[in-house]
Design a protein around this nucleic acid. Structure first.
Length: 294
DNA sequence: AAAGAGTTCAACCGCTCCCGA
DNA sequence: GTCGGGAGCGGTTGAACTCTT
């Protein structure tokens, strides 16, 4: 016995919405409010699936939607956030007032993915150790995992599958010019729009980099200047931090890779970089700037 | 001008999350 | 603790539109 379908599909209309249907849906929601999508079509007199109604309202009919082209600023935010958190379109859209996840997703797929990805990868990538991602949720958590997480959340026993949180690094910022470059301003504004939980990824013992922070951390120095550190482990876990930095510098430092360590993006993995330097210096920004302008 | 190729984006689909019974 | 329903999310599809030849 399978689960009940969200609606009886027989006899339901599909495809493009007509102006008349839009009007019916808008009127109904204005009168009764959002929600109860399952029963809405029946109550409103629409021959549509509840999910279809919800989608139409959220992506098209809502009055707070922002119409028109994605601005350069919005594009930058999408690029930054996608680099950081991957295809979590609803989270990205949440930072763009009036934009929907569908719109962001479409914009990424049709514009940004082509614009960014082909140019951002080095032709000869260094040896990157891919570590298990214990912090970031990729897609949906399985029911079993949810159950386990819930159990540990509600108890004082640490979940052995999740690395113990480490104290967040505090950086005495010395390299960043207070008269920041435009890119630095962009970077900091990007950092500011990230949600707090995204900024404080837990570190911990993962694989062969035990006792090293396992994820990138946005550090805030006493002077209030923030920097991204602990980015991506380069050159294998055995190489020194200095080696790692050199290898990294062979690439053009690029912001997408820079923030990649915040969450990782492939196959539940996370890239981490136990790089002791916790600042981004001017040279780094030059590389990022070049990438971003390309 | 027409046809084919490429692009865009609204809508659909399947899966998972969340929560109440 | 389990089950089921409502809702949300991300991937995919395909019609409509635009560009190129």
């Amino acid at each position: 016995m399978g689960r009940t379908p969200c609606c009886e599909k027989v006899g339901l209309k599909r495809g493009r919405w007509t102006a008349e249907e839009d009007a019916i849906l808008s009127d109904y929601i204005q009168a009764h409010g959002e929600g109860s999508w399952r029963s809405l079509p029946k109550n409103a007199g629409l021959m549509r699936c509840g999910k279809s109604c919800r989608l139409r309202w959220i992506n098209y009919l809502r009055s707070d939607l922002r119409r028109g082209n994605i601005s350069k600023e919005e594009e930058n935010i999408i690029a930054y956030l996608h680099a950081s958190i991957g295809n979590r379109w609803s989270q990205i859209a949440a930072h763009l007032p009036g934009r929907t996840d569908n719109e962001v997703k479409n914009y990424w797929n049709s514009h940004l993915s082509r614009k960014i990805i082909p140019s951002r990868r080095p032709s000869n990538p260094p040896n990157i150790t891919i570590l298990p991602n214990v912090n970031k949720r990729k897609g949906r958590t399985s029911r079993s995992a949810m159950k386990i997480n819930k159990t540990y959340r509600q108890s004082t026993i640490p979940n052995p599958k999740v690395a113990a949180p480490q104290e967040q690094h505090t950086t005495k910022q010395t390299n960043v010019d207070p008269c920041a470059t435009s890119y630095e301003d962009e970077m900091l504004s990007f950092i500011n729009i990230l949600e707090p939980e995204m900024l404080t990824m837990d570190g911990g013992s993962i694989g062969s980099v035990a006792n090293e922070p396992a994820a990138s951390v946005i550090n805030e120095g006493k002077d209030g200047v923030k920097a991204v550190s602990e980015l991506v482990e380069v050159g294998g876990t055995s190489s020194s931090n200095a080696d790692s930095f050199d290898v990294w510098n062979d690439w053009d430092f690029d912001v997408e890779d820079c923030v990649l360590g915040l969450g990782g993006e492939e196959d539940d993995t996370m890239l981490s970089w136990p790089w002791e330097s916790t600042t981004i210096d001017d040279d780094d920004f030059l590389g990022v700037d070049a990438w971003f302008q390309s």
